[in-house]
């Protein structure tokens, strides 16, 4: 564990909690892509199956459980409790366009051809692109609530911090996991455009709107 990884994990946790609190306190999930949230729940489910097979630390297991519970809670709030506020007309990205190619790639490019390892690889690839329905939704409506943009910033920062962690681990431990690194870089690149808008607009007190 190093400081970058810890900050990355905390940033990830912060993002998940910001989103849950936003939905709970406003009693609304307007502007949030349910498809991205379903994909994230799928990411955690397929990655954290090793909770049953591989013990790393209390911290590791606790965080996995928290991520899993929070992501399912978010999906539950969106599709059941506050379903009336879910903006499905704007959430039109087709999940199968991500899940099918990512599933195929996980079969072809992985560290080991075993069920758990393929599911882990699938989760890494899927996480890289799971935010696309959310970004697509924002590009359709042309705007995002400020709290939603805080959520996205925390979520994007998490993988960016992990990249620093991977550089650090490579030099200190000689550890590198090429699959995670390449997918993590793709994931971070997808957020770059959003980061730019966040810094130039939201941090200056304006709402995030896309140029016409």
């Amino acid at each position: 564990m190093n400081i970058f990884r810890l900050l990355g994990d905390l940033s990830h946790l912060l993002a998940i909690i910001i989103l849950l609190l936003k939905i709970w306190r406003t009693r609304s999930c307007a502007g949030v892509s349910g498809k991205s949230q379903i994909l994230f729940a799928l990411v955690f489910t397929t990655r954290y199956l090793d909770l049953f097979t591989n013990f790393i630390s209390m911290y590791n297991s606790a965080m996995k459980l928290i991520y899993l519970v929070c992501s399912y809670a978010t999906v539950f709030l969106m599709y059941f409790k506050f379903k009336a506020t879910y903006d499905s007309n704007h959430d039109t990205f087709r999940m199968e366009f991500l899940v099918v190619p990512v599933g195929g790639l996980a079969f072809l490019v992985n560290h080991d051809f075993t069920p758990l390892e393929i599911l882990w690889t699938f989760s890494i690839y899927l996480e890289a692109v799971a935010i696309l329905p959310q970004l697509f939704m924002i590009s359709k409506t042309g705007e995002a609530e400020t709290i939603t943009s805080h959520y996205l910033f925390a979520l994007g920062s998490y993988r960016a911090l992990y990249i620093v962690n991977w550089v650090f681990r490579f030099y200190t431990e000689g550890f590198f996991d090429l699959i995670a690194i390449v997918a993590g870089c793709v994931q971070t690149i997808l957020y770059c455009d959003f980061f730019y808008l966040y810094i130039t607009k939201v941090l200056k007190g304006k709402q995030l709107t896309l140029p016409a």
């Binding site: 990830h12 560290h111 080991d112 995670a180």
Partner: peptide
């Protein structure tokens, strides 16, 4: 035997 990286990250 699987010799890939151990998945100790979240």
């Amino acid at each position: 035997e699987f010799v890939g990286p151990k998945h100790d990250e979240l």
